[in-house]
Computed example of a mutant assay.
Amino acid sequence: MSSKSICSPSESSSSTKSWIVHGIVAGAAIAVAVGARAYLGRSKNFRSRVVGIIPARFASSRFEGKPLVNILGKPMIQRTWERSKLATTLDHLVVATDDEKIAECCQQFGADVIMTSESCRNGTERCNEALQKLEKKYDIVVNIQGDEPLIEPEIIDGVVKALQAAPDAVFSTAVTSLKPEDAFDPNRVKCVVDNHGYAIYFSRGLIPYNKSGKVNPQFPYLLHLGIQVLYPVSYYSS
């Protein structure tokens, strides 16, 4: 597959404003905070090394071969990779896949590829396996979904910086305004944050829920964006 583009090189990214939220798993906040402080004591460059991993598989149950679908002359995975490369906080960017066709395609347009097993049940497991195979160790792992060809580099940088600034958080993610027409779509994950910007709940149902069961047009509902930025505690303790 050729990496030559047949479309205009100019691209416009969404102007949707996104908020960065920190994620602390209920009941695990103490363990996360202790682990972060312990690592901080070993390094002056706390959370300074960042790797972006794009998990991609061919055999999707909902859309087989989705990473290779052509979008204006380029495969989707290439557009996701090119947008992600514009993020200034990433020290390294790789594609993690179990499919030779995807691997060959990515190598042709210049991406680093790590082959993973077919047993990975989701993108998180694929990222974790790829992380173990990297020669260098990283302080932060950015899980970038392979079907985000219009991902904003500023969102990647924002969630990375949010995690770097919050030593008591184990991961960070991003949310944006939820459109009223998507309120009851179970494929749109909703999020609730506290007054300090920390995520406290995620749901496929509408949250917060009110007695009427209807959308309150005056309430700023939030939509969760798929990007996740993690502090790989288990990686360093293994």
Rank of each mutant, 00 (worst) to 15 (best):
M1R: 04
S2P: 14
K4I: 06
K4L: 06
I6K: 00
C7T: 10
P9I: 07
S10Y: 12
S12T: 13
S12V: 14
S14L: 15
S14Q: 07
S15Y: 08
S18K: 09
V25L: 12
A26I: 08
A29Y: 05
A29I: 02
I30R: 14
V34P: 01
G35I: 02
A36V: 03
A38V: 13
L40T: 08
L40D: 10
N45P: 00
R47E: 04
V50Q: 05
I53E: 02
I54F: 02
A56C: 04
A59V: 05
S60Y: 09
S60Q: 10
S61N: 11
R62W: 09
E64R: 09
V69K: 12
N70D: 15
K74M: 12
P75W: 02
Q78G: 02
Q78N: 02
R79E: 05
R79S: 03
T80M: 03
S84V: 01
K85F: 01
K85G: 02
K85Y: 05
T88A: 13
L90A: 07
L93Y: 07
V94R: 01
V95W: 05
T97I: 08
E100N: 04
E100S: 06
A103V: 04
E104T: 06
Q107R: 15
Q108A: 14
Q108K: 15
G110W: 04
D112E: 15
E118K: 15
C120Y: 01
C120E: 06
R121S: 14
R121A: 13
T124E: 10
R126M: 15
C127M: 10
E129V: 10
L131C: 11
Q132G: 04
K133V: 02
L134K: 09
L134F: 06
K136D: 13
K137D: 14
K137E: 12
K137T: 12
Y138A: 03
D139Y: 03
D139I: 06
I140T: 06
N143W: 09
P149T: 00
L150W: 09
L150Q: 10
I151T: 08
E152I: 05
P153K: 01
D157M: 06
V159D: 02
V160R: 04
A166T: 13
A166P: 00
P167Q: 09
A169P: 02
S172Q: 04
A174F: 03
V175F: 05
V175T: 11
T176H: 03
T176N: 05
S177Q: 10
P180K: 09
D182E: 14
N187P: 00
N187K: 12
N187C: 08
R188V: 13
R188P: 00
V189Q: 10
V189W: 13
K190E: 07
C191K: 03
V193L: 09
N195R: 12
H196A: 10
A199T: 10
I200L: 08
F202L: 15
G205E: 15
L206T: 05
I207S: 04
Y209P: 01
Y209R: 13
Y209H: 10
Y209T: 11
N210C: 07
G213Q: 07
K214Q: 15
V215C: 08
V215W: 08
Q218G: 02
Y221D: 09
L222D: 04
L223F: 13
H224C: 03
G226P: 15
G226F: 03
Q228W: 09
V233F: 11
Y236V: 07
S237Y: 10
